[in-house]
Write a protein that binds this DNA or RNA. Structure first.
Lengths: 301, 301
DNA sequence: CTCTATCATACGTCGGGAGTATTATAACAA
DNA sequence: TTGTTATAATACTCCCGACGTATGATAGAG
C-alpha cells in the first residue's frame, strides 16, 4: 500500500537526483531509501528514475509524479493545519439561533466583533422563538441561542448577557411627554401598539406582564410586525408603545422616548447545552461576555 | 509521522461513525483502528471524534479534517493515475525539433495525428537546422528531431519517414511549361529563385547538388526566405525554382508545377538517441511509421 | 588498469502495527 | 435496581517490514 513515506522519499530523491544525499537529507541510510523507491515504482507500475550507476534522472512519469506528489504533501499539510485551526475555534461552522427582538440589542454588535476575530468561521443564523431554540439546542441542531428570559430546559445553560431597559415611546404632543417622572400606570388608559405575540413571545409576555404588575391590562389597538412600523405609528399619534431602549436609535418623526421610573427591563441570554463547550462555542461565549460588552449595558436597576 | 493509513482509517470511521464497522470495512480488528485514530489525533493535536462509549461523532475539527482528508486521498489517486499514464506515453512533454522545410511536408499531418491520439502530451516545437537538432538530441534538450538527410551523429539513430519528390515551379508562360518530358538540365540557363541557405541547409545543399549532377551551377537571382514568396516570384516571371512536391498545394497565380524525369527527391527523417526510447518517443515514432503514413508518400523512383 | 563514486543486494535487528482476549461503561430491558 | 448488550479502550503478544550495516557490482575518471 502506498504511504506518505513514499512520497516524501521520492521527492527527496527527485530533488537531489542522488540516493546518498537524499538519504542523508531524510536522516536515514541509503539502502532502505533505494528499497522504498523501488517499492513505490513497483506499486505504481511505472519507473520513476533512470539509474545509470553513475547518475540518476527522472523519467517522464517521474516528472509528472513529482508535481502530483508535491500537491499531495501540500494537501496533507493543509489538512493538519486546518484541523488544528478548527480545534482552536478559528475555523468551522457555528449555528446561532436568535429571538426576533435580538437584532435591536447587543446581538449585531457581538456578531460583528466575532466575525472580526474569527473570519473563517461560517455563521449560520436562524430566527427562532426562545422555546424553539432550546429544543434545537437539545437536539444539537443549534450551537448557541440568543433567548429572552425567562427560559429554561434540561441540559441547557442560560446565561444573561444583556439587560435592556424597557422604555416608553409616545407621541411628542402626548400630555405626559414632558412630565418629569413617568410611571407605567400613567398610561393605563392609553391605546397601546405592539407586535404580534408569535413574533416574539418572550418580549411580548414580558411587556404584558409589566402592565399587569402596574395594575392594568393594556388596551391594544394595533398589532404591527415591524418594530420600525410601531414607532412610526406612535409618531402618527395612534398610541404609545413599550420598546427596548435600543430602539431609541430609530429616530422617527414625532416620537419621544422616555425612561420610566423603577426601570422595567428585559434580559437577553445566551443559551447552550450544559456540557463541554466546543472551541467554537467557547470562543463565541467569551466574546459575548468579555472585551467590554458589559460596558455597553444599559444602567441596571 | 502521519501516514496515508491514518487518512484511510479516519475516513472509514468518519463515514461509519462506528469503530467496529469501520474496522470491518478496512478488513482489520477494532483495537488497532482505535489506536491509530488516537495516534492521529495526538499528532494533529486536535480531537477528531467525540466517543461517548455508546456513539461516535465528529468534532468540528473532525468535520474540517474529513473534507481535507478526502482531497488528500484524491490527490494520491490522481498522482498514481497520472504517473501510470505518463509511463504509457499518454501524458507528458515531448520536445520536437524540425527543419524549416518540414512544415510543408508530412510533419503537420503527423503532428495532427499524434495530438489526436495523445491529447495530454504537451508538444514543445523547436525550429532548428539538422545539425543543431542532432546536437540537441545528444545533449537531451530534444526528444525527437525531423531532419533532412544526409545527417548522422554518434548515438543518434536516423530513420527515413518520408521521401518527397523535388519538382520544378515555373512561370506558366515559360517555353518549357507544356513540354511533355522535363529534365533538370533543361533549365541550366534559367534564373533560379531559392531561399537563403541558413534557413534550411539540408534542402539547399540537396538542390545545388542536384543541379551539379545535372551538369550546371544554377544562376541564383533571388534569395527569398518564405516559400510562399518564392512561388509568388516564380508566378511573376522572375525565374524558376525547385521545391518539394508538397508545395503544389500552394496555388499561386501564373505558376506551373512540373515533375522532372528521373525524379529527384529529398528525404525527411526522424532522429533520436540510439537508446531505449521513452514511451512518449515510442508512441510518436510508431505513429510516424505506422497507420497509413507510408501510403501518403510520393511515388518513389 | 586502478581508484572512486554510487546504486543494488544480502541479511540481521527491532519498532510498531495488527491480532486476541479482556475490561469498562453506557444504554436499555425486565 | 439488576442483568444484558453494545461498543470503545486496554493489555499483551506476535510478526511483518522498514531500517541499518556490510558488501557487491559497475561505470566513469585519471
Amino acid at each position: 500500500m502506498i504511504e506518505l513515506r513514499h512520497f516524501r522519499y521520492f521527492l527527496a530523491v527527485a530533488e537531489q537526483l542522488h540516493f546518498g544525499r537524499a538519504a542523508e537529507q531524510l536522516h536515514m541510510a541509503q539502502p532502505p531509501l533505494s528499497t522504498q523507491i523501488r517499492q513505490l515504482e513497483e506499486m505504481l507500475g511505472a519507473p520513476l528514475f533512470i539509474r545509470s550507476k553513475r547518475k540518476v534522472e527522472l523519467t517522464e512519469a517521474g516528472r509528472v509524479f513529482r508535481e502530483e506528489a508535491e500537491t499531495v504533501l501540500e494537501a496533507v499539510a493543509r489538512a493538519t493545519h486546518r484541523a488544528r485551526q478548527a480545534s482552536q475555534g478559528v475555523l468551522g461552522r457555528l449555528r446561532l439561533g436568535f429571538a426576533s427582538s435580538a437584532p435591536f440589542g447587543i446581538f449585531p454588535t457581538l456578531l460583528r466583533r466575532y466575525r472580526q476575530a474569527y473570519p473563517n468561521v461560517v455563521l449560520e443564523l436562524f430566527e427562532l422563538g426562545s422555546a424553539e431554540q432550546l429544543l434545537a439546542l437539545q437536539e444539537r441542531r443549534l450551537d448557541l441561542g440568543f433567548v429572552r428570559l425567562p427560559a429554561s430546559a434540561t441540559n441547557i445553560r442560560v446565561e444573561t448577557i444583556d439587560r435592556e431597559a424597557i422604555i416608553i415611546a409616545l407621541p411628542e404632543n402626548h400630555p405626559k411627554a414632558d412630565h418629569p417622572e413617568l410611571h407605567l400606570e400613567d398610561f393605563k388608559n392609553d391605546p397601546f401598539i405592539i407586535f404580534p405575540r408569535h413574533e416574539g413571545p418572550g418580549l411580548y409576555d414580558r411587556l404584558i406582564n409589566l402592565c399587569g404588575q402596574a395594575g392594568f391590562n393594556p388596551r391594544i389597538v394595533q398589532e404591527v410586525g415591524q418594530m420600525h412600523a410601531i414607532v412610526g405609528l406612535v409618531g402618527a399619534g395612534l398610541g404609545v408603545s413599550l420598546v427596548p431602549e435600543n430602539m431609541q436609535t430609530v429616530h422617527a418623526r414625532g416620537v419621544r422616548y422616555r425612561y420610566l421610573q423603577n426601570q422595567p427591563y428585559i434580559d437577553m441570554a445566551l443559551a447552550y447545552r450544559d456540557e463541554l463547550l466546543t472551541p467554537l462555542q467557547q470562543a463565541f461565549v467569551s466574546i459575548s461576555k468579555g472585551s467590554g460588552v458589559q460596558e455597553n449595558f444599559s444602567p441596571l436597576q
